[in-house]
């Protein structure tokens, strides 16, 4: 049996409400809240980035797994906001957590699905017998240009998953990936903000990949939507995952626990992974979980998990996603937000 032996997540304490952003750009907050189903989003502190978020999420995963960090043979961090263009984020994480130096480390990038890529490769290496444990992380401090629709959604957070063969809390039963050249969203080298193709990000990109990856996964597993207790899809806004779920035959109840985007925003590479983390926090032995990510460019990774008896032993060993989402919030106004996100030009 191969699967998750420890998981953890991290969200910054700072928040900004849709109203605060809409006010600056003369937009109607009620229209945005209704259209995108977003109410507020997380904002990274001035001293937080993909590396610090990954470290805190991985610390929570290690607390739950209760393993020796030296036994981790690979560390992969998926993000589209790695602080360095050249120097893998994982090099800093392994020294912070006491992993390695006998460890394989790499940074992954695939828009919003870099986190599920990291999980996929970590799982595959353990399944292949190359190592005892491997750590896959999805984290981002995502960028949205001032005044762009993305500014209402681009947020910060991440989740970490330790894959192993012993004391598995969620067995991975099936995986599937679906990828094509679909130019719906991109960021050129040296550009500060990404560009997107507006409505083209919907049907030809998000829905095509999420739905096809999901259908292929259902076919491969010979399972039906009603076989699952929970489902989580990539959450670029509140609306898309609900629509994708409905198209596939999943109910609102199956999506509810992992659907954290209205109050968290889109944590990009951390989106469906943080949703999965929220589900694992409350899952019961025997529950089956359906997860499909999406990364622009474009592609989707799908996983089917089966929760084991051991989940109850580890759920309370670290902070839960919902506790971080609902408590200890510090609200920012738009001026503070612009400063926190480096949107104000300062003298050198």
């Amino acid at each position: 049996m191969v699967g998750i032996v420890g998981y953890g997540s991290y969200l910054p304490r700072y928040r900004i409400k849709v109203e605060s952003i809409a006010k600056e750009w003369g937009a109607d907050p009620e229209t945005i809240k209704r259209g995108l189903q977003l109410y507020e989003k997380t904002v990274p502190g001035l001293d937080e980035d993909t590396i610090t978020i990954s470290v805190e999420a991985a610390r929570n995963a290690l607390k739950r797994a209760g393993i020796n960090p030296k036994d981790i043979g690979a560390v992969y961090i998926g993000s589209e906001s790695h602080p360095y263009a050249v120097k893998p984020s994982g090099t800093i994480l392994i020294d912070a957590l006491g992993i390695g130096p006998d460890v394989h480390v790499a940074s992954y990038e695939f828009a919003c699905k870099a986190g599920s890529e990291a999980m996929y490769v970590a799982y595959s290496l353990v399944k292949a017998g190359e190592m005892k444990y491997a750590l896959g992380i999805g984290a981002d401090t995502s960028q949205g240009a001032p005044g762009d629709a993305l500014e209402y959604s681009a947020s910060a957070g991440g989740a970490a998953f330790i894959m192993g063969k012993d004391n598995v809390v969620a067995e991975i039963l099936f995986t599937n990936s679906y990828t094509s050249d679909t130019p719906d969203f991109w960021r050129r080298e040296h550009e500060f903000y990404p560009r997107h193709a507006a409505r083209f990000t919907g049907e030809p990109a998000y829905f095509k990949h999420v739905v096809n990856a999901s259908n292929a996964l259902l076919e491969k597993s010979k399972m039906k939507p009603e076989d699952f207790k929970y489902a989580v899809f990539h959450m670029p806004n509140g609306k898309f995952p609900q629509m994708a779920g409905k198209k596939l035959g999943f109910t609102k109840e199956q999506l509810e626990v992992g659907w954290i985007v209205p109050w968290m925003g889109n944590t990009y590479s951390g989106s469906s992974p943080t949703g999965l983390s929220a589900i694992l926090d409350v899952a019961e032995p025997g529950d089956k979980i359906f997860m499909v990510s999406f990364g622009s460019g474009a592609g989707s990774d799908g996983f089917i998990f089966k929760v084991t008896d051991k989940i109850k032993d580890i759920q309370d060993k670290a902070v839960k996603l919902r506790d971080m989402l609902d408590n200890g919030k510090i609200y920012l106004d738009y001026g503070q937000y612009a400063k926190f996100r480096g949107k104000i030009i300062l003298n050198e």
Binding site: G45, D47, E48, I51, T52, V55, E56, R59, Y84, E348
Partner: peptide, 20 residues
């Protein structure tokens, strides 16, 4: 104590991490 960025060495230098 948590893991945070302490300072940046200008626009092109190191990001320096540590505890806060």
């Amino acid at each position: 104590l948590v893991f945070r960025k302490i300072q940046d060495e200008g626009k092109s230098g190191l990001h320096c991490y540590g505890y806060k």
